[in-house]
Amino acid sequence: MTLCIAAGGKVIALVASSFTLSWSHSVAHTEWWERWEVTPEGLRPIEARISGSGAGMEPPLDAVLRADGWHYAPTLPPQREVFLAASGATGGGWQLCVAAECLSLGAAAGEPLRLWQAEACGAGG
């Protein structure tokens, strides 16, 4: 599968069956981490972790507390597109990793990010 990323006026294509997203909450400065699958139906979140709660980061009722935070399985169906936005208040944006390759994206406030799955990535997706 190909994961397509539109950021900063550019389109990046990564061959991937899964990827992770992580970022720091702008107020609580705690880490949020998600693992996603790249499927023919779209992008599907399958695992998530919140390192602490507060300021809109309350873990779901079925979350399990472990040493590194609250773990849970999101219940969203595959998404055709995922849009991300950075506030600029975290000191960084999103960290997107495929295998051992990681990209830092969306560090500037208002820099929109768009993720989708396609056979060939183009600006229109």
Rank of each mutant, 00 (worst) to 15 (best):
T20W: 09
L21R: 12
V98F: 08
L103A: 03
L105R: 09
S104W: 03
Q117C: 07
T75P: 01
I12Y: 13
A73M: 11
G88M: 08
M57S: 01
I50W: 03
H25D: 15
I46D: 04
E101D: 10
G106W: 11
L76V: 07
Q95R: 08
L84I: 09
G54E: 07
E31F: 14
H25C: 11
W23Y: 12
A67F: 07
A120K: 07
T90Y: 00
P74G: 11
T75I: 06
S17E: 14
A55G: 01
A7S: 15
V11Y: 12
S87W: 08
G88W: 11
L61Y: 02
S51I: 03
S87K: 00
A118C: 04
A48P: 10
A108G: 09
G42F: 11
V27I: 14
R66I: 07
E111V: 01
A16G: 02
I5P: 00
T30K: 04
R80C: 10
W94T: 03
Q79C: 07
A100Y: 14
K10Y: 13
P60C: 12
R44Y: 01
P78A: 15
L61W: 10
Q95H: 11
R80L: 14
M1N: 00
R35W: 10
R49E: 08
G122A: 13
E101A: 03
T2I: 01
W23S: 10
G52Q: 02
D62Y: 10
P77G: 04
R49C: 08
Q95T: 14
G88L: 01
W32F: 07
Q117V: 02
R80I: 12
E37R: 05
A123G: 01
F83P: 00
R44S: 08
G88F: 10
G9W: 10
E101P: 00
P45I: 04
L14C: 08
P112D: 14
W116C: 13
L65H: 09
S22H: 11
A48F: 13
A7C: 15
A123P: 01
P78K: 07
G8V: 05
